[in-house]
Amino acid sequence: MAVDLIGERWTCLILRASMLGLCHFEEFQACLGIARNILSDRLGRLVAGGILARTPDPEDGRKVIYALTARGAGLLPVLVALRQWALDSGLGKPSHPALADRRDRLPVARLTLQAQDGRPLELEDLVWVGPEGEELALPAATVPSRSRRSAA
């Protein structure tokens, strides 16, 4: 399950640091202030999960480079969405570095769910469908009805 692989605080911080360009064990440790044993464990899990690749450093044979794989780079929207949610919820503080477009140095646009035609979607616009396009019914006890949700 994805949350088992990346759903832990230190793992998210390691991923963010990797996306900012850190690649050596010592850099991660110094930047994050993480204990060596925890860092070693989390890096090992990310490598085993195909999120990071571990390769020898061609400039220093005693070091290794941890680099995002294509699978790891695919987590960028997840981390950006999590940061935006935290800021919206008052759980984080706007800080630098801010994520910006390399070309014009302007902050990236907010992430939104979009329909196939580009319309922004909210929770009430969504439904789970099966392989034939049929709406899937979940047990009533687990999902509030639309009327109960809108009344809340």
Rank of each mutant, 00 (worst) to 15 (best):
H24L: 05
E26W: 13
E26M: 14
E26I: 10
E27G: 08
F28L: 06
Q29F: 07
Q29G: 11
A30S: 11
C31K: 02
C31M: 00
C31A: 04
L32M: 01
L32V: 04
I34P: 03
I34L: 10
I34Y: 02
I34T: 05
A35P: 00
A35W: 01
A35G: 09
R36M: 00
N37G: 08
I38C: 07
S40W: 00
S40I: 03
S40R: 05
S40M: 01
D41H: 10
D41I: 08
R42W: 05
R42H: 06
L43H: 01
L43D: 02
G44I: 04
G44V: 07
G44S: 07
L46E: 06
V47A: 05
A48Q: 13
G49S: 00
G49Y: 00
G49E: 00
G49K: 00
I51W: 06
I51G: 07
I51Y: 04
L52F: 10
R54I: 00
R54C: 04
T55I: 11
P56A: 14
D57K: 05
P58D: 01
P58G: 02
E59F: 10
D60K: 03
G61M: 05
G61W: 09
R62Y: 08
K63R: 13
K63H: 09
V64W: 05
V64G: 03
V64L: 04
I65M: 12
I65G: 09
A67C: 10
A67R: 08
A67F: 03
L68S: 11
G72M: 02
P77A: 04
P77Q: 02
V78T: 14
V78W: 12
V78H: 12
L79I: 11
L79H: 09
V80D: 12
A81D: 11
A81R: 12
L82I: 12
L82P: 03
L82E: 09
R83W: 12
R83F: 11
Q84D: 14
Q84I: 11
Q84F: 07
W85H: 13
A86G: 15
A86P: 09
D88C: 13
D88F: 13
D88W: 11
G90R: 06
G90A: 13
G90L: 08
L91E: 15
L91C: 15
G92L: 13
G92S: 14
G92Y: 03
K93I: 14
K93Q: 15
P94L: 15
P94S: 15
H96M: 15
A98T: 15
L99V: 13
L99D: 05
A100K: 13
D101V: 02
R102Q: 07
R102N: 06
R102P: 04
R103Q: 11
R103F: 12
D104G: 01
D104F: 03
R105P: 04
R105N: 13
R105L: 13
R105Q: 14
L106Y: 08
P107G: 11
A109D: 12
R110F: 09
R110C: 12
L111H: 01
T112M: 12
T112S: 15
T112L: 14
